[in-house]
Structure formats: C-alpha cells, structure tokens
Nucleic acid binder design. Sequence first.
DNA 1: GTCTGCTTAGCCGGTAGGGA
DNA 2: TCCCTACCGGCTAAGCAGAC
Length: 412
Amino acid sequence: MAKILGYQLSETSIKLLKFLFYYRGMTALQLAKMYFKSHNITGVQKSSAHNYLRKLKDQKLVTSKKIEADNYAGSLYYLTQAGLELVKSLLNIEDGQTGTGYILANEDKEDTQADLEYVIYKPPTEQIHHHLILIDFFVRLRLMSNQQVDHRLSMYASKAYEYNGKEAKIRPDAEVVLPYDRHYYIEVDRATESHSQLIQKFENYRHYFEYAEEINEKLPAAIVFVTDEKQQQYGMNRRWANVLAAYLKTMGDYALKVNLFMLPLNKVDHFIRFETYRPQLNRKVQTLLEKTLIQKGNYKDVQTFKQPTDYSSIDYMIAFTQTQYHIYFIRVAYEYDASIFSGFYHFINNLGDIHRKQQTPYKPSGVSQAIFYTDERPFLPDYMRKNYDLPPELLSHLELLSQHLSMYKLPL
DNA sequence: GTCTGCTTAGCCGGTAGGGA
DNA sequence: TCCCTACCGGCTAAGCAGAC
C-alpha cells in the first residue's frame, strides 16, 4: 500500500474517500453500491467496504455515527477534518477555490469543487434520514445504465436572492442536469411539511424565479419531490394532492415555466429516461395523432400548437373537417406531473382566443383531452372533495379536465 | 512483496418470544 | 413485568489466493 501525504492509502481507499467528500457521508451499504456499481451488493462486497472504512477510521480520516432513523441501519460514515483536508489535497483544491459543485464533471477532470469549510461539509447529523434518502437518490443516478446525469448537492444548488429589499435564499436538496441544459431542483420529501409550510416553500421559489427573470438567469425545468419507497405504498396520492394544490395556488404563471413532479426512489431511473426522451415522445405523439386523426377520424387537416414556454412539447391540436373543427388538449405526462393541471388551466383560459382565431366557415365541434404516459397512468386528484382552498376558477377548470379525457400508454 | 477480493469466525447490541 | 435465550444485522479481525 502506498504512503500518500503521510497516510497508507490504496486506490480503493482513495476512491472511497472521494465518494465521502462528494456526498458528505453515507452508510457502508450506500458506499458499497457506489463503489461496486450495483444495487445488489453481496455480503462479501459489503464486508470489503467495512474493511476499507475500518482502515480509514484507524487513520482518523473517517469517522462514523450510529443511525437511529427508521428504514436505515448501520452507521453514517463521513470524513474527519483531517480526511477533508486530505481529499482537498488529492483533488488539488486550492485555498479559497470556488466551484459549481457538479460531481461527474469533477470526476471527468474538471475543477468543480470548492474549498469548503468543515462545518459546511459535515453531514447533517440531526436529519440523517433525510440525508440518506438523498444519497439513495444519488446512488440510483450513478447506477443508471446508458446515461450519465450530472448532479450537485444543496450547498452548491442553493441560491441567494433579493425580494422586497430583503435577502432570501432557496435551498433545494440537490440539482441535476439533463440534456439540452435542463436543470431540475430536487426536494427530498418525507411528508413532514404541512400544507402551509409547502405554500411557504413554493412562495420562496416563486420569489426567486421573479428575481432570476429580472437578472436574466435561466429558470429550472422543474422541481422534483423525491419520496422514499414506503410512501409510494402508503399515501402517495394524498401527498401529491397536497403538494400539487400548494404549488398551483402559489406559483401563478411560473407553473407554466417550472414544472413539478413527485416520484418515489425506485422510479428515479424511469423518470430520468422519461424526461430525457420527452422531446422525442412529443414528436412521436404528434406524428401518431396527425396520422390517426386524418386516416381514422375523417379529418382533412390537423394543426399542432406547441407550449408557449417549451417548444418541444405539444400544447393542443386542432383537427378540421370540411365544415367543423375539434380542439384537443394534449399532454405527454409522468404519473405525478403538474403540467397536466397548469397546462390545462392555461389552455381553458385561452380557449376563447383559440376559437376567435379560427376562420369562418368552420364551426366548433367540441374540446377533448388526451394524455400520453409511459409508466403508470397519471394521477388526477379529486379536488372537489378536498379542502385546499383552491380558487373557484381553478377548481372549475380542473373539473373540466376529467370530462372527455382519454389516456394512452406509450413505450419508452 | 503489495494490493485486492474474498472467506470465515466471532463480538456486540438490539429485539422478539417464551416462561415464571 | 421481569428475566432468559435465541437470533439477527452490523461490524471487526485474521488470513488465504490470485494478479501484478
């Protein structure tokens, strides 16, 4: 074993130290999954990870804290002050260096990591469960087949801004980047925030988006609520209804610009692929519908209109016979996807304009909705029975959504 | 000889279950 | 309710084998 900067370090132990640096600490199991690049770690591989961690602990580079949270067993391993300084040396991080924090870019030899103080690096020992769900999310990102998704942690994704002359800050738990420079803010959701706290969270986001537009900063594509897998089994629909209502009440026009999703950890892989291929899925739906409406629907012409803030996604289509036209609201959507609701609300508000633009002698023959999905059917909460104090106009629009609605499954 | 992956044995703390 | 026992998972320690 080579002696490096006064410590006995093998290649494996250096790699483990870097993981602990990038992700601010994790369990031995999570570390083993990252290192061995597998969700199904053998007992031997786990034991091996324990052996390396033990050696790093003996050299006072790593320390651990027993986990007392539900769902997770074992200990949280993280760097000591000496361990942090060692990794900074190994990564050539200079004093006072700043960086974007993107992890895969850094592994690809680009300097992205900042010279963080130990108090900022040290993992949150008070909210270990929350932190470990986030690490599970990163494990799933790193283990995705055929796709590299760069990501960064909260300390890099947080953004300070000014609102009404006061300083404020948004603190997403993480940020990921998909092709076409689409950024997604990740929020780990343990269903512990009340409806009013969710509203405060979204108000904070909206204030930041107003500020970001003022200074010409690009808005994220979406905010993504990630839950643990237990929540998927128990109460995912209720939680989504609650989160979605807070978002729709608070975000205003930003609901059209920044989408909202919710997904459990075990759907991360599918969600990333869905979002990555959403432009292609929209093109597929456009081709399919134009062909089907003309061949089987006896229409002579079909016009497609794209979403005002996302030119790759379909907003609505108009199909013409010799004398009439029919309007179709179209969405390619994920199971828990706010664009169905924000998009439909905007669509209904603009329906008068859409009708006015149609030339005589065509007469309107009606409006229908079609939603295309790739995994589970998108969930439509029944807000008529729930009291979330949604504005009456929004409620009446959402009631229309489920009338004349069809859903179709697409292969991904 | 060094490094790495792997095997085996055993300690420790927590907990479920049964009996008094 | 208390105590005992068995069991389990997390973790440690020692050592072996193969590749270099």
